[in-house]
Amino acid sequence: MKKVNMKINIAGVELENPVMTASGTFGSGKEYGEYIDLSELGAVVVKGVASTPWKGNPSPRIAETYGGMLNSVGLQNPGIKEFIKEDIPFLKQYDTKIIVNIAGRTVEEYCEVVEALGDTDIDLLELNISCPNVKEGGVCFGTDPFMVEEVTKEVKKVAKQPLIVKLTPNVTDIVPIAKAAVKGGADALSLINTLLGMKIDIHRRKPVLANRMGGFSGPAIKPVAVRMVHQVAEAVDVPIIGMGGIMTGEDAIEFILAGATGVAVGTANFADPTATIKVIEGIENYLLEYGFENIEELRGNLLG
């Protein structure tokens, strides 16, 4: 079989293929590592990690909806110390890239995590200024272009690894936000985080989630995500990691045609623990079928 070149480059870091995991859906890979070979992934993007352990929100944290789901986990994580001790050595056993998603309530907290990671053997940082499930930090930073630029600038000052900024779709226009992140020094952008949503149990007349609202993900949000990736790709020159409802290789191809360099698989992991591998195979098959030798040929390659 003819081999295609799946390699991509994000801010100087070469990934074997464009498929990574969406932060928060994959832990640090330990659980899914029992079902798939993590070395086959372009990168593992770990669950958001903060300067100290966070307990997250009360249960229920999950609600299923038509073609998707809501979560209100709220960035539960063991804190950066534990992460460095436990999760980095685990991931280093595999031949994949490590992208650490950074959570924080303040600029100082973000910087603390990034500084702690300075001497570790990870590949990229992903600044999470877009989680809809926490009151402070998270999405509060991500919805105001001025704040986006400031927090990116401050984090970039202390970052030893290239910095991806993850954007929220919960804004009127994502383009000024994306431009602000790039102006602040972002080496790459990832989008979209979840859409803020809500589900009501009509029999109990109560919200299903204990936190009332949560982040909406899954195939139902894909058209919104593809549209935003397309808009941002037209407006900035940094690489984009596209995500939002990718279930198959065909879905991933849509994002790449919209201008994404890499793609991340999130909710699909829940529906099939081997989803990431199937997405990789699906992309390869598409390239072969349409006679592309290199995935780079496909990026933003929309006809009309």
């Binding site: 029992e34 997250g56 999950i62 623990p273």
Partner: peptide, 28 residues
């Protein structure tokens, strides 16, 4: 029982509170 997503421990969607030492010192 709790509402679950992944069912294998990765998403931390289905947490319950358990005591470390007492009611105040708990973990998910």
């Amino acid at each position: 029982e709790e509402r679950m997503a992944c069912g294998i421990g990765a998403c931390v969607g289905c947490t319950c509170k358990t005591k470390k030492k007492n009611e105040e010192d708990w973990q998910n």
